[in-house]
Design a protein around this nucleic acid. Structure first.
Lengths: 135, 135
DNA sequence: TTAAACTCTATAGTTACTATAGAGTCAAGC
DNA sequence: GCTTGACTCTATAGTAACTATAGAGTTTAA
């Protein structure tokens, strides 16, 4: 199958597939006489695996590691578990940051109302005041 | 004051200050005989304002708009309020996405335990299975 | 006077793509 | 055989908000 068909099957853009190849997430494939990339079912599986990982917000580098690990089925899988733990922790941290940010934004928003001028704007006043607090 | 002093006063890197100037968040300043940028207290205030906005995760483009608005003190400030509302909504959405992602990751993590091999790894098995769910 | 510390511009790198230009390939219809 | 359209190829630039570097010039203190 050519790249367009693979793209359709996996709901991935053609450019993204070529990008993944360049980034070593997909191996270089056979080429046709006219220099077109040719793929098989294994490529579909691999690409779907990559997509699932991306949906989990794993980086391409992390996915690359997972793909490497998959190639040694007898090795310990602790590294996979550790990667997930670290990743979960990062998501957790980001959620907490955003929750705080949201509260900060809401407080700020409440300091203004409609019908005011820029000069009277509670938001701009707060941001311009010299109390320069951090996140 | 030269750029290094401004950087120290605002806890901003020298490169970032030059970058902000290029991006029109800071106006071009006077230069010394030796072509060094020279700043005054107003620049400190402006840069601190930008930093506060960045801490609120506002984009440089949004900050640029705010700075423009600040220059017409008589205009209505509804635009500022709308920008905040939109921004709060975006943060809200992102939090919800991340909370879902976290749950998904936790479920996945529970499918594996220590001491397994790659072949037995619950995480990799789940990701390799053909149930290709979306986020 | 000379060395250290500072500043300047311009450029490349980061992440994970997306978009484009310009060229080649292939299949179907005339 | 020829043309047209759909597809593919490579290479390059753009995105956001910086960070890092090279190579040059300036200033200040010893």
């Amino acid at each position: 199958m050519k790249i367009g068909e693979l793209a359709k099957k996996t709901d991935c853009s053609v450019q993204t597939i070529r990008y993944y190849e360049k980034e070593q997430l997909l191996c270089t494939t056979q080429r046709s006489d006219g220099n077109f990339r040719l793929y098989d079912e294994a490529a579909v599986e691999q690409l779907l695996f990559i997509k699932l990982c991306r949906n989990l917000d794993l980086s391409l580098s992390e996915i690359r590691q997972l793909l490497t690990l998959k190639r040694s089925p007898g090795a310990q899988c602790d590294q996979v578990n550790r990667m997930m733990d670290t990743h979960i922790q990062q998501v957790e941290t980001r959620i907490q940051e955003l929750v705080q940010l949201r509260e900060h934004l809401k407080v700020l928003r409440r300091s203004c109302s409609s019908g005011r001028t820029i000069e009277q704007c509670g938001i701009l006043q707060t941001l311009t005041t010299n109390q320069h607090q951090k996140r």
